[in-house]
Amino acid sequence: MKLAVIISVILVVGAIVCIGRLFVRDHKIETHGRDIKALVEDIRHVGTNDGGSFEIAYRLSWREGDARRTVDGRDTVLASRMPQLQKGCEVDIKYLDDSHILFVFNA
């Protein structure tokens, strides 16, 4: 019985820490990230969850001075946002670094 309680506490604390890290990550991107208009060069549907969201793998590119910058990543987006994320479309992003990108959708 004690083992079940300990495992439950560990799982709950782990979930709270994970969610907290996501909020901190998003806040860091929101406050320190640059606003960029990027071109969707490639996008693939990787998976779907029960909440109506899609996990996607993407490749984005944009111009920085004379150079073309390209970044690959994965993210989870609502199914209703997928029409805005088609190959060849331009999207607004907040860019902090290659591991910290946030899609910006207008309401």
Rank of each mutant, 00 (worst) to 15 (best):
R34F: 13
I101L: 10
E55A: 09
R74G: 11
E41G: 11
W62E: 10
E90L: 15
I16T: 12
K87Q: 11
H45Q: 10
V17T: 10
G14F: 04
L85N: 06
R63C: 08
N49P: 06
A57R: 15
K2Q: 12
V17A: 14
G20F: 06
N49K: 08
V9S: 09
S53R: 08
K87H: 00
D97R: 03
A107N: 14
A38P: 01
E41Q: 15
R25S: 13
L22N: 15
A15E: 07
D50L: 14
L60K: 08
D66L: 10
W62Q: 12
Y95C: 07
R68W: 03
S80C: 05
D26G: 13
F103R: 05
G14W: 02
D98G: 15
G14Q: 03
L102W: 02
A4T: 15
S53L: 02
A107L: 14
R81Q: 13
R63P: 01
T70Y: 09
I43W: 02
S8V: 10
I7N: 11
G20I: 07
G73S: 09
R68F: 06
D75N: 11
L85G: 05
L96I: 07
N49M: 01
L60N: 01
F105T: 01
G47S: 15
V40F: 14
I16F: 11
F54C: 06
V17W: 06
R44L: 12
